[in-house]
Every structure is written in C-alpha cells, then in structure tokens.
C-alpha cells in the first residue's frame, strides 16, 4: 500500500465540512443573500466540541453511543472509497457491500438513538428514515454494479484491481466507457443522484432547514443531541455527503490519465462542483410531499434495474 492512498481519507476528513458551506453559499446566492461564511461548518464544529451536553432523563447509553458509532462507521467507510480512478486504501471484491452496510450501521444507530429519547417526533423521523432506506439501498447497490459491469478490468500499478470492488469499478470508467455505454452510465448516475439526495436529507426528499419538526426526516432524529454528540453527527453527515459526492463525481468526471494526482484533482473538482448542483436544486425546487418520496425512490430503483439489465443484455 502506497502512502499516497492515505491522502484521500485524510483529505476527506479535512475538507468534508466545506461541502456544507458550499451548499449554503450557493443557496444564499440564489436567494440574493450574502450567506454564511464558507467555513461556517468548521466554526460550528469547533464550538460544539467545546460545549457541554444536555441529556434527556429518558435516554440510556444507546443515545450516547449513537453519534460515536455513526462517526466511526463513516470514517471507516472512507478507507474503501476510491477517488476517481485512484484506488482506495483497501480494495477487495465486494467492498461496495461493505460500504453500503457501514452506512447501514450508521443508520441503525442513528435510528435507535432517536427511539431512545421516547419523543414522538424522533420516532416519526426514524420511521421515515428506515422506510426510505429500504428503497434506496437496492438502488445504490444495483447502480454501482451496473457500472462495474461496463468498465474494463482495471490495473493499478501492476496489480489487477478486483473487478467488482469500488476501486475496480471506478478505475474502469473512462471517457471511452461513456462513449460506448453512456446510456447505462446516465441511468446509473441518475439513480445514484436520487439516492444521494435521499441519504443526505436534501430537497426534494427532506429539507435540512425547515423549522417544522413534523415534516423533517433526518434532522428530527437528532433534535435531542447536543454538544460534542451533535458535533459528531454534523461531522459524520458531512463525511457521508463526501462519500456520495465521490461516488457520483467518479462517474461524471471520468478523467483517467493514470496519474493518481491528476485524476484525484479532477475528481476533487467534481466533488466540489456537486454541492453547487445540490444548492441549485434546493433553490429551485420545493420538497416533495412525503407520500411522493417512495415513488421517487422506486423510480431510482427502476432506473438502476434498467441499467443493470441493459448492461447484462447488451
């Protein structure tokens, strides 16, 4: 393992809160406001880490463990996440399942921590979160696999990358892959994008800035967390956004020159453009009615299935 591979997880740890800032600035720009500073998320994190915490008398250790398990899972996931064509720290056949299930670990503990408060609102949020994940998980997995079936088997510095690992999948995507099976990639990317919006609690699925608890999904689950606990939640959601951003940027910016730094830089650019796209969507769309969200997600599932059926057929 080359030392250079460590750069990406470290960079992600360092830069991911910036993504939240970019989304906010974009939205402010469209609303004609000046907006928060780009580094606001860092200030928030620093402030929250220094604060003390308040706990509900109802809660048990599960509530305190939730944010830590979530952050640990998100940080572990960074180790199998490739950046563009550059391989991840660890790659192995089926690491995409590991990544998805780590996100599952994160969700499991966020949900049980929410249920631990005994609040009706947090229960409601938890219920919606698990409902949407049922549809989002297969869509994510199938769209990644569809991309894996397109790409030519990739070789990284003499060692063949496992064909069905995230690193292998992303190393195999390139401009020529777009040329000969762009349809599949487009379908997979659209499915992935819908999953990104869902998993990161973005409009049109969820509104991170709403102040009506009744309509929230993700934010309502963490209402009772405070201080360092809330900082960890904020941080892990930034990392989660980074993870999905890297997955999507890896398709949309298929620069595969073979040079780790160049490819990495191109993908990094893609990752930072993505929050702008999210900001544009959030400024131009209203959130969907909650009953419509499952339809959107099953749409994503259909796109993913279509992609994989096409690639196996064609």
């Amino acid at each position: 393992m080359k030392m250079i591979f460590i750069l990406h997880p470290l960079g992600a740890l360092l830069l991911s809160p910036l993504l939240l800032g970019i989304v906010n600035r974009t939205k402010a720009f469209f609303a004609g406001r000046k907006g928060l500073p780009l580094l606001q998320a860092y200030y928030d994190l620093a402030r929250l880490f220094q604060k003390s915490a308040v706990y509900s008398r109802t809660t048990s250790w599960v509530f305190r463990a939730g944010p830590m398990v979530g952050l640990a899972a998100a940080m572990t996931a960074l180790l199998v996440l490739p950046i563009g064509g550059g391989a991840a720290c660890l790659n192995f056949t089926g690491d995409l399942i590991f990544l998805i299930y780590l996100l599952g670990v994160m969700r499991f503990f966020t949900v049980v921590a929410a249920l631990d408060t005994g609040s009706a609102f947090e229960g409601m949020g938890a219920s919606r979160e698990v409902q949407f994940s049922i549809l989002a998980e297969p869509a994510l997995l199938l769209s990644l696999l569809a991309m894996g079936e397109i790409g030519e088997s990739a070789i990284d510095s003499g060692i063949p990358l496992p064909h069905l690992s995230l690193s292998g999948i992303y190393a195999g995507l390139s401009f020529s892959a777009w040329m000969h099976s762009g349809t599949v990639l487009l379908l997979a990317a659209s499915a992935l994008f819908i999953v990104l919006l869902t998993e990161n609690a973005r409009i049109p699925v969820d509104d991170p800035n709403t102040h009506l608890e009744l309509t929230m999904i993700h934010e309502v689950m963490v209402l009772d967390h405070s201080g360092p606990d809330f900082a960890m939640i904020l941080y892990s959601s930034a990392i989660k956004l980074w993870i999905f951003g890297a997955l999507l940027a890896g398709i949309l910016v298929p620069v595969r020159s073979g040079d780790f730094l160049l490819d990495g830089a191109a993908t990094l650019g893609g990752i930072f453009l993505l929050p702008i796209g999210i900001g544009v969507i959030e400024s131009s769309m209203a959130r969907l009615r909650l009953l419509r969200v499952p339809q959107l997600l099953s749409g994503a599932g259909v796109l993913a299935i279509l992609a994989i059926v096409l690639v196996l057929k064609g």
């Binding site: 308040v54 706990y55 109802t58 609040s119 209402l223």
Partner: peptide, 12 residues
Amino acid sequence: GKIPGQSCTWDC
C-alpha cells in the same frame, strides 16, 4: 470537567 445537563425530552 463539565457537568452534562439533565432535562426532559424535547417535544417541540
């Protein structure tokens, strides 16, 4: 060194 506060669950 900090004493975590105690309260009831936030119910909006």
